[in-house]
Design a protein around this nucleic acid. Structure first.
Length: 422
RNA sequence: GGAGAGAUGGCCGAGUAGGUCGAAGGCGCUCGCCUGCUAAGCGAGUAUACUGGGAAACCGGUAUCGAGGGUUCGAAUCCCUCUCUCUCCGCCA
């Protein structure tokens, strides 16, 4: 959520900055409601001040029969207040809804663009593996080795669900343990294991709601949602809290499955593991001092890249343009891993600084020191990494001419020393 | 799922015949005094949000005692609903 006061005072600026996202945001409604709200608030509060004053006078009168006139008067004042407050509540509710639907303002450094095509490549690491045979896509590798079973996944649940079998299941587990160990032991993140379903407040805090309810799985009978990313529970750990400035930055990592309806992606990536309704992810989340959040973003991105470097996987880093960054983000870098089986780079991590956008929604603040006023923290997060897609990358990059797959050095301790899947 | 108890400020904890309670007291914290240093002691201060005025320092108003409604001139205190926590029973990994 943007700061309403900031919008009020910088209407044109906000409107033009948001326009670069490609969504026309009309702030006229905001201005109308905001003005109306303050007018009504003033009226209501003036009457309340009067009532408080007179009520206090009444309390001092011993003989209440002397106070009948004023009591009657206040009865009317109270009626008026009640009416005003009711109307005010309606206005505030609508204002809140308007505010919750306004996306974050992109950081000044974000390249302006309208689509994915305008994203800017920042760097590449490693190079494409040399293969003297035609590389297979991972779904073929997985089926041939009988470690991925798409048909039975579909039987058990439906499209976009997969059964991992044997070494496939273990490879997935190896990857996520490897990632968690790296981030906790080498990068100083604190491991969390949060609930995999959360309530509406949490989803609103990070920005999934109210705008993207269609993308979420909702439980029947209780108002809970399956999390689409660990970002939601982990960021909301500190919802409605005031943190100590000394404790910042807080670095958390968490493995969770992620559940997404992928509404609107019908027909896209229908084969293989790329786009599933359920996938595993190791997430990195930071609560940062506002002044250091961009330095923290660079570090977070590097922490995520480190996973790929240790796995020896070729990748590139892309800076998303204004037209492509997410609703809540002020700036985002994607990491895309090379997939020989598909002859292309595919997103495997997305690292963002949300600045105070989520912090304001979720009311996550800190005090610089004991005396200081609370300020909003900056929240950041990034995948470190998407485990399913990492498995895809391993299969496709380490496939051999004979159909087997070499296991990257770094993962072997997690595979009981196994060097190859065949 | 059944029965009961509870939810007050950073923490602990008073406050139920409704008014002077944003809320006693203690702890913690901040500043000052004092002691050669430390501890102890003494004094003052110590919530948040919105809002009006002001360049600002700051001054004023309103709200907040789990959340939401109700009764009343007036509610932390009375009534209703909900949420959460704890205890016991049942069920269960």
């Amino acid at each position: 959520m943007l700061d309403p006061r900031f919008i009020r005072e910088n209407m044109e600026l906000v409107e033009s900055r948001l326009k670069t996202r490609g969504e026309g945001v009309d702030l006229g409604r905001f201005r109308e409601l905001d003005t109306r709200r303050r007018e009504m608030l003033l009226q209501s509060e003036t009457l309340k001040a009067l009532r408080n004053k007179v009520s206090e006078e009444i309390s001092r009168i011993k003989d209440k029969s002397q106070a009948q006139g004023r009591i009657a008067e206040m009865r009317e004042v109270s009626q008026k207040i009640k009416g005003l407050d009711e109307e005010l509540r309606g206005v505030e509710e609508e204002l809140e809804n308007v505010l919750l639907m306004i996306p974050n303002i992109p950081h000044a450094s974000v390249p302006v663009g309208t689509s994915e095509a305008d994203n800017v490549e920042v760097r590449q690491w490693g190079k494409r593996p040399v293969m003297d045979f035609t590389p297979k896509p991972h779904w073929e590798i997985g089926e041939d080795l009988r470690i991925l079973d798409f048909e039975r996944g579909a039987k058990l649940t439906g499209a976009r669900f997969t059964l991992y079998r044997g070494a496939g299941a273990r490879l997935e587990r190896a990857l996520l343990n490897f990632m968690l160990d790296l981030h906790t032991e080498r990068h100083n993140y604190l491991e969390m294991l949060p609930p995999f379903m959360v309530n509406r407040e949490s989803m609103t805090g990070t920005g999934q709601l109210p705008k993207f309810e269609d993308d979420l799985f909702h439980l029947d009978g209780v108002d809970y949602f399956l999390i689409p990313t660990a970002e939601v529970p982990v960021t909301n750990i500190h919802r409605n809290e005031i943190l100590r400035g000394d404790d910042l930055p807080l670095l958390y990592t968490a493995y969770t499955p992620c559940f997404r309806k992928e509404a609107g992606s019908y027909g896209k990536d229908t084969r293989g593991l790329i786009r599933q309704h359920q996938f595993n992810k190791v997430e990195l989340v930071k609560f940062s001092h506002p002044e250091h959040s961009y330095a923290e973003l660079d570090r977070l991105l590097d922490n995520a890249e480190e996973v790929l470097r240790l796995l020896g996987l070729h990748y590139r880093v892309v800076e998303l343009c204004t037209g492509d960054i997410g609703f809540s983000a002020a700036k985002t870098f994607d990491i895309e891993v090379w997939l020989p089986g598909q002859d292309t780079f595919r997103e495997i991590s997305s690292c963002s600084n949300f600045e105070d956008f989520q912090a304001r929604r979720a009311s996550i603040r800190f005090r610089e020191d004991e005396k200081a006023k609370p300020e909003y923290v900056h929240t950041l997060n990034g995948s470190g990494l998407a485990v399913g897609r990492a498995l895809v990358a391993v299969l496709e990059n380490y496939q051999q001419a004979d159909g087997s797959v070499m296991i990257p050095e770094a993962l072997r301790p997690y595979m009981g020393g196994q060097e190859r899947i065949s």
